[in-house]
């Protein structure tokens, strides 16, 4: 820094170098942003998991979740057994004009019925249209991406561990049964493979299946 004006030259060099580099601007309306999973865009509802426990509505800090339900009695499963009652969801709505995107509802849901979706383009000209009813919330569900992969050395999710344990137990039992009658090789299906593909894994949303509408429909609905 002994040379006078070195700082001035350095400043000029910085701006000139920046000019020759690519800008960091996100060209949003022309190019859609690549948002990571769990981005706080909109909340999707996986209705089948909802037990109408109302935890989300109660924990919501600004009371933007509306839930209506009624009770239905189910006939006894076994003859002579007790009748079961079950909550049936009538209405599930989130008012996104009130929602502050804190994500508490998603955290507290004990049955993984609510999910963050990175979709964010649902501005409306009428504020009432920002109250998304259950069909809209279901459409958002199909836009929920896979969660990011776990770290290589991460602990296994509890659900995965439980599923694997039961699968291994089952496999061991099968193997024990199979050894006695035939004495052939151990089971054709190794326990690991059955344990590695559990139907639902932790907070993973159910992967979209054929009967579910695609993402494009969800956008059109929004």
């Amino acid at each position: 820094m002994a040379v006078p004006g070195a700082g001035l030259a350095k400043g000029l060099a910085v701006t000139l170098r920046t000019m020759t580099r690519r800008s960091v601007t996100a060209h949003y309306p022309d190019v859609q942003p690549e948002l990571p999973p769990r981005s706080r865009g909109v909340i999707g509802l996986f209705e089948e998991n909802c037990t109408v426990c109302m935890l989300c509505a109660r924990e919501c800090p600004d009371w933007c979740i509306y839930i209506d339900s009624h009770k239905e009695t189910m006939p006894a499963a076994a003859p002579g057994g007790r009748e079961r009652s079950r909550n049936v969801l009538d209405r599930f709505a989130i008012d996104f004009a009130l929602c502050m995107y804190c994500g508490i509802c998603i955290e507290v849901c004990p049955f993984d019925a609510l999910f963050w979706s990175p979709e964010f383009e649902y501005a409306e000209t009428d504020i009432r249209d920002l109250t998304h009813e259950r069909d809209t919330l279901r459409e958002w569900m199909w836009t929920v991406p896979e969660p990011p992969a776990l770290d290589a050395a991460a602990e296994e999710p509890k659900e995965m561990a439980a599923a694997r344990k039961s699968a291994e137990k089952l496999a061991a039992k099968e193997a024990g049964e199979g050894q006695r009658p035939s004495g052939g090789p151990p089971s054709a299906s190794p326990p690991r493979s059955s344990g590695a593909t559990p139907p639902s894994s932790g907070s993973t949303p159910p992967s979209p299946s054929a009967e579910r509408p695609g993402r494009a429909e969800g956008e059109g609905d929004a």
Binding site: T15, L16, T18, M19, R21, S23, V24, T25, H27
Partner: peptide, 13 residues
């Protein structure tokens, strides 16, 4: 445009 690019932006588009 020049100022925008010197600041890592793109300016009017």
């Amino acid at each position: 445009k020049a100022m925008a690019h010197m600041q890592g932006r793109v300016g009017p588009m």
